[in-house]
Simulated assay, not measured.
Amino acid sequence: MCHSRPVASGRLIVYTEDKLGNRSERKSDSKELDIPLAILVNGYSASASEILSGAVKDHDKGTLIGTKTFGKGLVQAVQELQDGSGLKVTVARYFTPSGVCIHKEGIQPDIVVELNEKYSNLPVSQVPREDDAQLKKAIEVIREQIH
């Protein structure tokens, strides 16, 4: 069952800063989920998934489980060139609500759980559920929060 409650105003989810220090903020809407939440993260969690993970962690809205995220914290834009090709240019950096720059740092999970090494080169979708230590820990954490 999904529960939500209104908050006075949206919460800061992420902000960016360009090289001149200009800051741009992104906030949530006024609805706030009020349910147990566990997010699985690892070294392949990057960019948008790190933004979500950082906001959840900074606002203490859930538990991050797994290993440190990738650390992709750059905002890039493509400048189209006259010949139709393009040049990708970094224009800003992402920061979590508490001011942590994600780039090259990643986000540490609240609970570190390594996957079995035999699955290290497989997509997580191919890890058998019965062998997925991270998923098992997430289920345990959610069950503890429910009771």
Score class of each variant (00 low, 15 high):
V124R: 13
L74G: 10
S45F: 04
V78P: 05
V127P: 03
R23I: 07
S125Y: 13
T90K: 00
T69D: 00
L52F: 12
L81N: 15
R129P: 11
Q134D: 05
K104I: 11
A77D: 14
K31D: 10
K68C: 10
L81T: 13
V75E: 00
D29R: 08
I39T: 01
L37P: 05
K57C: 05
G62A: 09
K68W: 03
G71N: 08
V112G: 02
I51E: 15
Q82G: 00
L115T: 07
I102K: 01
A133S: 14
G62M: 10
F95A: 01
N116Q: 15
A46G: 06
A55F: 15
C101E: 11
I139V: 14
K88I: 11
D60E: 11
G62P: 07
I65Y: 06
H59I: 09
I107S: 00
P97Q: 00
E50G: 09
V127L: 05
A48M: 13
E114D: 12
H103I: 01
P123R: 01
K136M: 15
V113I: 14
K137P: 06
A92K: 11
E25S: 03
Y44E: 01
I111C: 04
S125K: 15
N121R: 08
T63Q: 10
I107Q: 03
S47T: 07
G43C: 07
A48N: 11
A77L: 13
H103P: 01
R23E: 05
T96A: 04
S45C: 08
P97M: 03
I102D: 04
T63P: 08
P128V: 09
I107Y: 01
S120M: 04
A38S: 07
G21P: 10
A38V: 11
K31T: 02
L33M: 05
K57E: 03
G54P: 06
P36A: 02
V89S: 00
E114G: 06
L64F: 12
K118H: 14
P128N: 09
G71W: 03
T63H: 07
F95G: 02
